[in-house]
Amino acid sequence: MLHPLVIDVSNLTKTYGGKTAVNGINLQVHKGEVFALLGPNGAGKTTTVEILEGYRGRDSGKVSVLGFDPNAKVSKLAERAWRDQIGIVLQTTMDALDLTVRETLTHFAKYYTNPKDSNAVIESVGLTEKVDEKVRTLSGGQRRRLDVALGIIGRPELLFLDEPTTGFDPEARRAFWELIRNLRDEGTSILLTTHYLDEAEALADRVAIINNGEILEVATPKTLGGRQNSKVEISWIENGEPRSSLSDTPTATVQELAARLGGEIAGLTVARPTLEDIYLKMIGENS
C-alpha cells in the first residue's frame, strides 16, 4: 500500500499484575483504511485500542498514532492538537442524560477547531426526529448513534469505533454500515473492534485476529486463514436425502453431480467457509 500510516505499532506489550494482556503486537493501519480488530472477550482488543487512544500506558513497544505517541509526556497543547484530529466512540457510555441530542452535539462541536455541521451529523446518524429529545428518552440503539455522532463531530482524520453496533437491530446496523462507508469515502481512517464477523466483512479492508494478547493473522476478509483456497462445501438433495461433500475443485464436483443426476441438481448450494467459520477455527486452534 502506498498510503502513509495513521497507526504504527510495534512490539506493544502491556501486563496487569503479572497477567499479560497484550503480548508483542505489531499493527499498521494506512490512511483511508477501515481496519477491524477481531477477537474474543479478554483477547486484548480494548487494551490495545485504549493504549492507542491515550487512555492507558504501555510496558514496552513503539506506538505512533497520526505521528504522535499517545503516551509521550508532551505539552498539553500538542496533545490537544492531536486529540483534535481523532474521534473516539467508546463502549457503552451513559452520560448527558438531561440534555437534548442537539444540545449535546452542539456543545461537543465547540471542542474542535474544524467541526462538522451539527444538523448534518444528526441527519447522517438518523437522529433528526429525536433532535430535541432528552438523551434519557433514547433507545439503546439511538444512544449508540449519538455516541457515533459525538465521535465524528470533530471531523476526525482517524476514528476509533469500539463495538459500535452492539444492540442494533438489523436495519439500524445496515444504516450504520452505510454511514461508515460514507466516512471512509470522505477519507476518514477507521479502527473498528467488533464481535460481528459479518460487520467486519462488510466494512473492513483488512482484519486482524487477536487472541491471548497476540495477533494471529492480518489479512483481507476474503483471504483470512487461507479462506480463498479452503475447501468448499457443496450440498444437494438426492433421493430425498440431504447430501454434502467438501471439495477443492467445486466446479468439477458440480459438473460431475449434474452429469450423474441428469440436469438440475435439487437443493444445490456451494458455500465457502464464512469469515465466522474461519475465525472460530483460528481461535479454536490457538486456545
Partner: peptide
Amino acid sequence: IERDLGTLKRLRGTPMP
C-alpha cells in the same frame, strides 16, 4: 458518579482541557 458513567472518559477523548 460522572467517572462511573463514562462521562469523564468521553471528555478525556476530546481536545477539551
